[in-house]
Amino acid sequence: MMSLLTIKNLSVAFGNPANPFRAVENMDLTVNQGEIVGIVGESGSGKSVTMMALMGLIDAPGRVTADELSFDGKNLLKMSARERRKIVGKDIAMIFQDPMTSLNPSYTVGYQIMEVLKVHQGLRGAALKQRALELMEMVEIPAAKSRLDAYPHQLSGGMSQRVVIAMAIACNPKLLIADEPTTALDVTIQAQIMELLVNLQKSQNMALIMITHDLAVVAEVADRVAVMYAGQVAELGRVPELFRQPAHPYTEALLSSIPEHSKGAERLSTLPGIVPGQYDRPSGCLLSPRCPYAQERCRAERPLLTPSANGSVRCHFPLIAQPVEIRDRKVAQ
């Protein structure tokens, strides 16, 4: 099956071209139609930047390069900005962390929802309003009709996020990217919004990329998960196998800190230190300064993403050695 989204060797660099800071480096990810992919990783690991690059929202002097960036059979890299905007907001939609600041304070909720429909689907007049109401009902906004003329400051955080979701699903996107959609919300609301997203994903048959710090959520809803570290994919694989049997030391550390993580902590107690930033990236494996299993080779040589038991892993000494088939083949030889 051809995947809906293919990202191959994506890099995003900021700053001085002579000595760039690669916020994202050699990023590989595929997403199939109708699939939920979780992306996890500590703060600063490049989750948002990757998605912004996909949406074409990285501004100069930031630079995006990739071997492949294709969506629904179309090469996004070869498109003009104008062609790309026909896909962005329509077939690929994105929602962000803080709903209270994601809506323009000067325009009504109705205006902001209808704007998407006008621009991408050319709807006008009664049909436009009708569709906006329909969307607001789909995201379970009570008294939708009266809320059409409300301004964002008159809405609660949860209600604002529903509006943002309504805007995002307005044109029946094939892929919805949710970048920590519940982090800024009350705990009670978080579960509601997450449930809404998962329900919409099913009913609309969208693919969903769910960026979160909450591994419990990923374990519950995602089909696959990408664990990111310092701008790279550390490990990628199927849920729940990957969680049961992590191959990468970083995944293992993430998992062992789950209790704090589900409360939204952004740093790991099980792994001292922080994600290396612009000036302190080590030359070998990016995790080597923090990794309890690090050896000489780790500090000298960067590991590549290679197949593992439950997907792929970027580590010289994976915790479960090799994919089963490969090991079997070796035995047979």
Binding site: L57, V88, G89
Partner: peptide, 12 residues
């Protein structure tokens, strides 16, 4: 953030 939202909507 809302300008980012506007751009993510694919507006010109």
């Amino acid at each position: 953030d809302y300008v980012r939202t506007a751009r993510a909507k694919g507006l010109s």
